[in-house]
Structures are given as structure tokens and as C-alpha cells.
Simulated scan of single mutants.
Amino acid sequence: MEPLGRGDPRARRPRGAHGFVRSRDGLYRPEELYDATPYSTSSDARAYQWSSEDRSPDALLTRALHDESIDQALGRWCDPRKLVGVMGGHAAERGSQEYADATRLGRTLGATHTVATGGGPGAMEAANLGASLAEADDAAVDEALGVLAEVPSFRPSVDAWVDAAWRARALCPTPSPNLGVPTWFYGHEPPNVFATSIAKYFRNAQREAILLMICDAGIVFLPGAGGTVQEIFQDACENYYATGDKVAPMVLVGRRYWTETLPAWQLLTALARGRAMEDHVHLVDTVDEAAALLNRPPVSRPSAPDAR
């Protein structure tokens, strides 16, 4: 949230006793959230602390109005775009093969779509990085990955993690537009700076639903844990009841992971059987296969009858 400075024209907006504005006209930029160092003094960290501690009616109302204004701004931002989502865990460290793969996926998808992620670290950061470098050359991508590998994780130091990210981002002064949709519910995980626009919510349930809904060109699910599994089946529920022209492709990456480690694939395909979504769920081994599926012409089939 934004503190109101003296003379700030936004002071005319409704605000709570805590001094934070209740609404915004647009999405966040990374520079707004990381507006001070050390990180603990930034707007992002202070908003998380405030949301964790202040449960007063005024604070709850402010957060609800803030999230509604983010909804409105996000709708305007998405309107001219076709979004493809990349979902995955926060554990993929910079310098790892998983991180490099997610970067390549974001870059490939970013050449034909607008990429959206959960806006956090790990695979989410990597996909936003790749999307931001969609028009950059291979050398710039390799250099950025090298800079980031110097600080693999936001633990133990968010400041070092963010500093490396700013240095990597400086290698591409005009990044391709892409989106992050993080939440202060997971405020211990800092947002990444490679999403050029950030729709940050206080309410995670609202954020999850919106993130999946706006990805009308499909979603790639990289290996992840509880949050990613939740996203798979929340998206599957939307597709289950969708008509043929409204089904968005779902691509799970990692055959062994999604059939043995966390066997979501078996339940997903059983759920899809006989529905309009059946031809739109895919299991692949590589991010290159996933990108190829989302870049091909869509397949449609007649809508199945409702069977709630």
C-alpha cells in the first residue's frame, strides 16, 4: 500500500487511519514496492507487516477496497492481451536447471503471448525473467542468469537477492510486458522485479481465482507442491464446467513428477474424461514441448452436458 505524502494529490482518495490509500488507479511497478532499503523499510515489507498485525474494521475495509481497485486495474491491463500462465513452486533456485528451464519457457511463451505468474521467487521469477527478455538475444539471457546465480535464494538476505535482480534487469532496459500476481498473504516471499506490472493482493483466495481466470490462452504447471496442486484443480474446475470455446489448455510438465511424486495427472484425466476439456489437458516432459502446445492452433469439441 502507498503511504500518503504531504501535498500528494492522491490524498483526496479515501484512506484509513493508518495512512494507506484505499484504492489505486493502476497496477504496481516493482520500483513502487521496492522503494527503500533495507527491504524491511520498503512499502512491500511495511504493507505485509501492517496486514499481519492490524485486524481493525478500518484496516479490513481498506484492504478490501484496495483489492477491488487492483481487480479493476487488472481488468483494464488485460483487456487487449492474451495471457498464458506459468505456475510452479518457489523452491527453484537461481543457477539451477529448473530455474533455467522456467526462464526458457517464459521467454518462448513471451514471444507470442503475455506471460502471467504468481509473481514470487523460484519458478515464478524465472518465468517472468524469461518473458521480460522475450525480445533480447541469447547473450543477454545468459548474462542475466549468470548475475542472478550469484544469489541463489532470497534467504538469508532479501536485500542481496533483490540487488542481484536489479543488476540483471538493467541488462534489458526495455523489458517485454508481463505480469506478476503475488499476495501479501505470503508476504514472507518477496515479489520478483521482472514482472513489469504487478497486481498484488491482500486476499490470497481472491488472487488465486483471478490469476487462473485471466490466463485465457492456457496455463503451464511446472513441478510444485501444495500451492501448485491447488492451482491445477482450481483451474480444472473452471474448465470442467466451461463450454468448448471457453476451455483453456492445461499443460503439466514432468511425467514422472505428476504421475509418481505427486500423481495429480491420473485424477485430472479421470475428471476430464468425456468433458469439453478432455482434449485440452496435456502431460509433457519438457518446457519446450509445453510451449509448442500453447503455440499451436486450438482444438475444440462439443460441450458436454452438465453433470454436477
Rank of each mutant, 00 (worst) to 15 (best):
R15E: 00
R207W: 02
V84Q: 00
A149G: 03
A199M: 01
D71A: 09
G7M: 00
Q266A: 15
A116H: 00
V299Q: 15
R308L: 14
A272L: 09
A131H: 08
P298W: 14
P182V: 01
Q97M: 06
I232K: 12
G224Q: 13
P223Q: 01
E289Y: 12
M124C: 09
G274V: 14
D235W: 09
L27S: 07
T174K: 11
D285K: 09
G75D: 14
T117P: 09
Y48W: 15
A92S: 11
T183W: 00
T117Q: 10
N178W: 08
R203A: 11
A272S: 15
G122M: 05
G119I: 10
P191N: 10
G95R: 03
R81M: 09
I219L: 02
D67R: 02
E93G: 00
L60N: 10
R104M: 13
G19L: 02
T286N: 08
F20K: 05
A140G: 01
T228P: 05
Y240G: 04
C78E: 12
T117D: 12
V151F: 06
G224Y: 08
E98D: 11
A165K: 05
I210D: 02
T112P: 00
W166T: 00
D142P: 00
S51N: 07
R155P: 00
T41Y: 05
G95P: 03
P9R: 07
R12S: 00
A304N: 15
G110K: 10
M1G: 06
D54Y: 06
R273I: 02
L148E: 07
C78H: 13
L109D: 04
G146S: 08
M87G: 06
V141H: 04
H282D: 07
E2K: 14
D71I: 03
A140D: 10
R12V: 11
G19Q: 06
Q97V: 09
M250Y: 04
A123Q: 12
W258M: 10
D142F: 00
V247L: 09
R81G: 07
W77A: 08
P305E: 14
A272G: 13
V251I: 08
I70T: 14
G130M: 13
D35L: 10
A140P: 01
V84A: 02
L65Y: 03
L212M: 01
A92C: 08
V281D: 15
P305F: 12
Q49N: 06
R308S: 13
G26F: 07
R203S: 10
I214M: 14
G227C: 04
G254Q: 11
D235Q: 14
F202S: 05
R10K: 10
W50M: 15
S23L: 04
E278A: 15
G227A: 05
E150A: 08
E93Q: 10
D245E: 15
L268P: 13
D138K: 03
D58R: 11
T108E: 15
A139F: 03
S153Y: 08
W161K: 04
N128Q: 01
Q49C: 11
P182D: 04
P190W: 06
A91L: 04
I198R: 03
D137Y: 05
Y28K: 08
E143T: 14
G118P: 01
T286F: 04
Q97K: 08
V281Y: 11
N295V: 01
Y240E: 12
P298S: 15
A199Y: 03
D163M: 02
D216K: 12
Y240K: 11
